[in-house]
Design a protein around this nucleic acid. Sequence first.
DNA 1: ATTGTCTATTTGTCTATACAATAATACTGC
DNA 2: GCAGTATTATTGTATAGACAAATAGACAAT
Lengths: 360, 360
Amino acid sequence: MIIDKSSPIPQYFQLQTWLMEQIDQGVFRPDDQVPTEKELGQLTGLARATIRQAVGNLVNIGYLVRHRRLGTYVLDRKKENGKRTIIGILIPDIRTGYAPELARGAEDEAARQSHSLILCNTDDSYIMADRHADRLIEAQVSGIIFIPTANPVERNRLFIEKFTKRDIPVVLADRTIPDMAVDHVTTDNFQGALDLTSYLIKMGHRRIAIILNSALSTERERLEGYQAALAQHDIPVDPEIVIAEAGPFSKEHYQEYISSLLERRDRYTAIFAGHDRIAQLIYSAAQELGLDIPGDISLVGYDDLPFTTFSLTTMLQPIYELGRESLKLILSRIRGENGEPRRIVLKSNLVERSSVKALN
Amino acid sequence: MIIDKSSPIPQYFQLQTWLMEQIDQGVFRPDDQVPTEKELGQLTGLARATIRQAVGNLVNIGYLVRHRRLGTYVLDRKKENGKRTIIGILIPDIRTGYAPELARGAEDEAARQSHSLILCNTDDSYIMADRHADRLIEAQVSGIIFIPTANPVERNRLFIEKFTKRDIPVVLADRTIPDMAVDHVTTDNFQGALDLTSYLIKMGHRRIAIILNSALSTERERLEGYQAALAQHDIPVDPEIVIAEAGPFSKEHYQEYISSLLERRDRYTAIFAGHDRIAQLIYSAAQELGLDIPGDISLVGYDDLPFTTFSLTTMLQPIYELGRESLKLILSRIRGENGEPRRIVLKSNLVERSSVKALN
DNA sequence: ATTGTCTATTTGTCTATACAATAATACTGC
DNA sequence: GCAGTATTATTGTATAGACAAATAGACAAT
């Protein structure tokens, strides 16, 4: 029986729940007609007013539509809520690095398709990300673009599950989380780092230092690319000049690593900076020590941020495109496309400027 | 009579409308009890089910709350929707100038108070602003932080009215619109420019060029400050070295003005750049011509953006605070504070670096 | 002073019934 | 064939009445 008359649960509510289950389980499918009020009356033995109360509530929350004389139909929610939605985007800090470019790419595409973007800064901390999460859920976002924080994998996983549990799709931008079935848009960091390191080797450098943040999947991949390039040229890795520490770093942390690295500068001729902002810090630190780049040390970065401080050879990442693609992907999920998690990898390009000296 | 039985308008709907009017007109005020269903029955002569239908609808759309045994009460909508809202922020471009800093200030304060921010880029064009407007209204934003576009006043006015017509409060950030009664958060551009110009004069400069975008209220005020400073020292304004054109400019536009200004460099010893990004372009152009700053030309900017290119003496604007204050102000309006439009003016500070040569 | 019980009131749930409005469909007359 | 008409199923609006559940407040018991 559909209705348990002896239950303390109101009968209209029992009917309402039953109808929702049928819809969710696909017994009544989108655009199908549900039984008429009369038929529901026969099915359940309830009065028409009670049935109207149950159905009315479902109309209110957007499960059903009623048409006079034609009957009551299941609303195609996918179709409805794909129209104009709000999407949350969580980035470390809108003021730094590639965040502005990424946000702009995402926002342009969102605006083009009449969707809106809620901006959240995480400062690379899961605590802040978590605070944003509850707010975003309340604001009824339909999807999330997330740049994982520089915290242990487990923290990021829990954050994402908050959304997936509620059927809110999540796309990871740039950074990924290992062994997690989530959509992901990134650039080919391995290949990029391999190319960049190979370029240094081609320029005659064999002892190449590297400094990066191993809490970030992107930079771990760059480390692998660096190692692969060295291996290809039978150059052993010198662990003394590989600085790959995990953690969300402040400028001061980096500066310490950099100055210790600069003290060992007899061990290398070039530095591979994990991203352009590190390269910038290295440049400043070198200047203070009276060192010339590329005269004394060659330097490459990664990102191609729009600085004007000095002429850095670096790997250009298509960040604007990365933002756009992330948004397109999340929208396709919001529109109901389901299937295997997708991984979109964009190409990077070496930008040769004048921070590398040819040794040969 | 409240109900017209002969009207084709359903009676529950008449009652519903009547109740809404009473609430909107303040007959029933927030947290007041409305008549009980029984009393409404006596007042209208309708059956209780009909009354319940009317009241039920108002409960659904958030006008009323029912409490068993206690009666039905008017919801304090101000209090309710002040809880967690969405606020739109329209800035020229999240990638450039002070936009990231301003957005971060606003977002931090929003997050702190559990509100969310929808980011919109206008590219300083009213056409884009307008497209965002419709979207924001559909997304049911409760307030707008708007940096007016570099378009004629009338365009910005129309944009703002789209919101005010719908009782959505608007706060102008940084730039203002003349003769318009809107809340406004800004820095004291007149005083800042006056101080900055006075500083140049104190350093021995008497012939000071200025280049700025007169489509922006902020830069117009800076021009006035500049003129006031010259007047205070009985220095006549040389119109040949005052470049104050109106319009949204591209980098190329500025570069043209700059090169024509640099051709006339016998007429001045210092340049006041309308904002730091112009100063940056002047610096680059000067370098290309082999000119030294401050050796050949002294230069000051306005904003104190975080560049690292060169050491620019400039006027620090508290942009992060400006974002925060804008958000606080809009929230107070959303919470229902009404009264005269407010104007919050933040102090700027001269940051003395090394782009100005002392001539005395 | 606290706890339990009762009462009155108000909203919550439910039944049974009636007629109105709407629109798809079948039918009728030309 | 086609325009107009009648039929009919379905939701929309409305009434009258009943009992259930919750709770403020009064009162009683401990």
